[in-house]
Write a protein that binds this DNA or RNA. Structure first.
Lengths: 107, 107
DNA sequence: GCAATATATCAAAGTTCCTTGATGAGTCAA
DNA sequence: TTGACTCATCAAGGAACTTTGATATATTGC
């Protein structure tokens, strides 16, 4: 089992922080079925355009989304690698089966 | 597949927010092997006592930890139910296989 | 009871994050 | 080129989170 460095913890915390907002989780949910342009997300989420743009950038900066321009529209999509990264971060916090029997006492 | 309510998103965001800090992830990592008293965590994490106490409370309020007093020590442990809850929150953001082919266009 | 130990809580200050409204930049069509 | 449209960015204010140091509470041993 690999040891966890401070950098790993920072990265994992950054991923979780990106997920720590209901609006951003709503965005992700709407991208599960495939890429969407910002205009559709604006309609679906009924939110101010600059606010949506801020959260999209937050997710993109964390590596969770990718975007591509097509004509005057910009399409956002989930980055599968990031989802895998999140899953491995969660796996890293699951109790280790081998450790369940260990009981440590203060002297 | 169950629909996701605003309350679900709020709860999932709260869980992820609790994980969105490297100190708290460090605490969780040290609890993977079983419960620990605060004194041991203080030694391991080399942090101010009130600061550690704050983060323990944050994790406990989010439902991730349980504590029990034994004599003059208080032991913290991961709550397996919460870990399961996190895993299901992550499962909810994984791209749905059936949706990968859907391409939605702005008119 | 008293002192020592382990931990929680509180208030104040600092820091980061979020929202809003305004403006900028890229694209298309006429 | 101009105007309309789509989206990003910026600045300012507010809200939420974090850290720190001081103090409070609970437990134990003497």
């Amino acid at each position: 089992m690999a040891t966890t460095t401070d950098r790993d913890l920072e990265r994992a915390a950054a991923l979780f922080r990106a997920l720590a907002d209901p609006t951003r989780l709503g965005i992700i949910e709407r991208l599960r079925g495939g890429e969407q342009c910002v205009c559709d997300l604006t309609d679906m989420l009924e939110t101010a355009q600059s606010r949506l743009s801020f959260h999209l950038k937050t997710l993109k900066d964390a590596g969770l989304l990718r975007d591509r321009r097509q004509g005057r529209w910009i399409y956002y999509a989930l980055d599968p690698d990031a989802i895998a990264e999140i899953e491995s971060a969660v796996a890293a916090i699951r109790p280790s089966a081998s450790g369940l029997r260990v009981v440590k006492r203060c002297e």
